[in-house]
Amino acid sequence: AQVHVDGVTYDFDNPEEAEKFAREMAKRKGGTVEVKNDQWHVE
């Protein structure tokens, strides 16, 4: 699973880890999390 944050792509073998990371980053940035094509996007 991939997580996109500020133009940087992070690869995770485990989708749950990807989701956890995406939500944590969004919380830190005060942003939102979107899922597109099985990829997490932190805005």
Rank of each mutant, 00 (worst) to 15 (best):
Q2D: 02
M25W: 11
E34K: 14
N14T: 13
R28D: 12
D38L: 11
E24Y: 08
D38Y: 10
F21K: 00
W40F: 13
G30R: 05
V5Q: 01
Q2A: 07
D11N: 14
K36F: 11
F12L: 03
V42Y: 04
G7F: 03
E16H: 11
Y10M: 02
V42W: 03
N14F: 08
V42N: 04
R28H: 13
E34A: 14
E43N: 15
V8W: 09
G30K: 06
R28T: 12
M25I: 12
T32G: 05
A26S: 05
W40L: 07
K27R: 11
G7L: 03
K29A: 09
H4T: 11
A1R: 13
Q2S: 11
V33T: 05
F21V: 02
E17G: 03
F12S: 00
D13E: 10
E24H: 05
W40T: 04
E19G: 04
K27M: 11
H4D: 05
E34M: 15
V8T: 09
W40N: 04
T9G: 03
E24M: 07
V8Y: 10
E43F: 15
E24N: 05
N14Y: 08
Q39P: 03
R23W: 12
K29N: 13
D13A: 11
D6T: 02
E24I: 05
A1E: 03
D13Y: 07
Y10R: 01
Q2K: 13
P15T: 09
Q2I: 09
N37A: 08
F12R: 00
N37M: 07
Y10Q: 00
P15H: 11
E17Q: 09
W40G: 03
V5M: 13
G30P: 05
H4A: 05
D38I: 04
G31R: 01
E17P: 00
V8R: 11
K36N: 09
D13S: 11
H4R: 08
V8D: 06
Q39R: 09
E16D: 12
R23D: 08
E34R: 14
M25D: 05
G31K: 02
R23K: 10
E16Y: 11
D13Q: 10
Y10G: 01
E24F: 06
V8I: 13
H4V: 14
T32L: 08
E43A: 13
K20D: 11
K29W: 15
P15Q: 10
D38W: 08
F12P: 00
H41R: 08
P15N: 11
K29G: 10
K20R: 12
K27G: 10
T32D: 05
A18F: 01
E24R: 05
M25E: 14
V42I: 09
K27E: 14
H4K: 08
V42Q: 04
M25L: 11
F12H: 00
K20G: 06
E43S: 14
D11G: 08
N14S: 13
D38K: 09
E43Y: 15
D13W: 07
W40I: 07
P15V: 11
A26D: 04
G31E: 06
N37H: 09
E34P: 02
W40K: 05
V35S: 08
M25N: 04
Q39G: 15
D11I: 14
E16I: 12
G7R: 02
E17T: 09
G31T: 09
H41N: 06
V3D: 00
V5K: 01
K36G: 05
A18L: 01
E19R: 05
E43R: 15
R28L: 15
D13H: 08
M25R: 03
D38G: 15
V33K: 02
